[in-house]
Design a protein around this nucleic acid. Structure first.
Lengths: 208, 208
DNA sequence: TTCATTCTTGATCAAATGGTCAAGACACGA
DNA sequence: TCGTGTCTTGACCATTTGATCAAGAATGAA
């Protein structure tokens, strides 16, 4: 007898459990080895499923990659969305930068997955970059511009300022190996946060 | 009759010409597709040599990669080495940041090659990071520290400041696709330079 | 020109890898 | 317990790809 549920493929318990397992393992493997460097066998081994079983849930390797990438992207922009023009800019930006640093520390794999994708020309997320991302950045650049016109912060190019925040905060995830080679293992997170906030907000020129 | 030259393998004209061709093509291909993503066939095709011929000059794929990576690393640190404690800090740092931006623009492939290597755990250049790079950064951090103690610049953590410069400048090469998706193609280089210098040197807090 | 050395490549191999399939094991509502 | 649909997998396939090799072509010093 046909299952009563219609097309929209309701998930069984086993389905959601295993898809979750797969996505977790895939994030790990893809972020470490890149898309081409990762193998389906690796992902399968990491989550304790057989390769054919994994390909039962995601028909192609690329489907796994796309799924884990999209899952990552949605969370990635939440902090930026929260930038609120009605609040104090220094408070808001301090909070945004701190949150980004925190995210990079808590989930460096996600940061690296995204970095790797963009580094190689963003073949899977071009539309995301040109659409939702561009729109969001323009909206938030407008927020920063508002603060500038209210003379609450110095006149800096808002878009480039957003790029700088991304660059610096994600650097601590994407280039962690380099950072640790230079600073020693487990660099002091508080020091890092203080330094990054100091640099991005205050610069280093002695005030005239 | 034996060639008069001894072991140290003197290069013939053809050798240096072809090795040069190969390294140029390899930089392109490796930086675009990553180590695992790049194929020997691609590199061979790009420089117009047959695959066996390419493997006549570099026995293994990894040898090509190592060669092009080392070739890149040596040039990469030249600007930082030039940071001179006896000069004016703002002049020196402005110059360093501008040069790094310039390099990222002129040779984004080199930046991406390096980024990709570090992103994936720097398996081929661990020793370089722990040795020469660490030493150089410590030396130049000391230079910045000297400027701080002379009250010529604000007290920022020198190492984190160097990281920030790297992060922001290389961002424009490594994440070029993203930058162009948001700012449109061919972003104004002068505007970028002005903004980056403004952010890293001045910050955006209104002076008290 | 001679000829030892260097350079070049078509053919080929073995391993890795994405993906398929049919058959069987299991879950769970009736 | 039964039976249908879901889940699992060993075996297998086709392609890609790094690497080899033997044989031939080009080079250039004497």
């Amino acid at each position: 007898m046909m299952k009563s549920k219609a097309k929209p493929a309701a998930k069984t318990r086993i389905q959601s459990e295993n898809q979750d397992l797969i996505l977790k393992a895939a994030l790990d493997v893809f972020s470490t080895y890149g898309y081409r460097g990762a193998t389906v066998d690796q992902i399968a081994a990491k989550c304790g499923l057989s390769k054919p079983n994994l390909l039962y849930y995601f028909r192609r390797k690329e489907d796994i990659y796309t799924a884990v990438l999209e899952h990552t992207l949605t969370e990635w922009l939440i902090p930026l969305r929260m930038l609120d023009v009605t609040n104090d800019p220094i408070t808001e930006l301090t909070n945004y930068i701190s949150t980004k640093l925190e995210m990079s520390h808590r989930n460096p794999a996600a940061s690296r997955l995204f970095a790797n994708e963009v580094l190689h020309g963003a073949p899977h997320i071009r539309k995301f970059l040109n659409g939702p991302l561009k729109d969001l950045v323009e909206a938030k650049a407008a927020v920063i511009q508002t603060w500038i016109e209210a003379k609450k912060i110095k006149p800096v190019d808002p878009q480039h300022f957003i790029f700088s925040i991304w660059a610096v905060t994600q650097h601590y995830a994407d280039f962690a190996v380099q950072v640790e080679a230079i600073m020693g293992p487990k660099p002091d997170r508080l020091k890092t946060q203080t330094a990054v906030l100091e640099i991005l907000l205050n610069g280093l020129k002695i005030s005239p």
